[in-house]
């Protein structure tokens, strides 16, 4: 075949087009087929991942509702973020009572952005838990923010981490601040991990920035989120919150 190619006139362009077109069509068919087959499974996986994180940061929650928070108001939303506004996840217990609101945040750490999901408890106006979604901090140092009991104690205590709005409702009364290890004095301060100060500060920055943006918008509409009606089919065990 090599010999033929060298002497015979060049392959006609039409043949090339047909072959490439044929291969492209075959490829397209395969990709669409696999996409159709896997799409429902992938979506279910993603929902489960979000749900797992939301239920972790909102203790007691068994149901989830998504909301889009904009300066105009708060609206129910789908799983895919729709442009302008902040997507938050309301966590409800099986009676439909609001247990807390899970919100995304991100702050610059030692080796890149630290992405968090944190749970805001409207009853005590505080942050009760946070979960790291993604980070590239040094294993053994920066990733202590997940495992260090002392650091977690900043949030887990009876009053959580204070995130109270000021009287006018325009910003936090006291900005959330990460302080040096061992010098926490106020409920809005985060006691840093010694040896992982930069990552601890990233958590503080992420929480503060996100809370400052979100809470003034969210506060006036909190009442409308307090309760939801549960459809009979929506049992807590298999509820998807959609």
């Amino acid at each position: 075949m090599k010999g033929q190619d060298a002497q015979a006139p060049a392959t006609p362009a039409l043949k090339m087009l047909i072959v490439l077109g044929g291969i492209a069509m075959l490829s397209g068919f395969l990709v669409v087929l696999v996409d159709q087959l896997t799409k429902p499974i992938i979506e279910a996986n993603q929902q489960r991942a979000i749900e797992r994180a939301v239920f972790k940061v909102v203790p007691g929650a068994t149901l989830r509702r998504n909301y889009l928070v904009t300066p105009e108001g708060v609206h129910p939303a789908g799983d895919v973020g729709s442009g302008n506004g902040i997507t938050v996840y309301g966590g409800y217990d099986d009676q439909g009572r609001l247990k807390g609101i899970a919100v995304n945040g991100a702050g610059m750490g030692y080796a890149g952005l630290v992405y968090l999901l944190y749970g805001y408890d409207p009853d005590c106006a505080c942050i009760r838990r946070f979960e790291v979604l993604k980070m590239t901090e040094t294993p053994g140092l920066g990733d202590k923010i997940i495992s260090d009991a002392g650091f977690q104690a900043n949030f887990i205590g009876p009053d959580g981490l204070s995130a109270r709005l000021n009287g006018a409702g325009t910003a936090l009364e006291n900005a959330i601040l990460t302080v040096k290890h061992g010098s926490k004095q106020h409920p809005w301060e985060i006691d840093a991990i010694s040896g992982a100060t930069i990552t601890s500060k990233a958590v503080g920055k992420a929480l503060n920035q996100s809370a400052q943006n979100l809470l003034p918008l969210l506060a006036p509409h909190l009442e409308q989120l307090k309760r939801i009606d549960i459809a009979p089919a929506e049992s807590p065990t298999n509820g998807k919150g959609e």
Partner: peptide
């Protein structure tokens, strides 16, 4: 094509 197939499959 096959890389895309693998990509979707692992996600699933």
């Amino acid at each position: 094509t096959f890389v895309t197939v693998v990509d979707y499959s692992i996600q699933a």
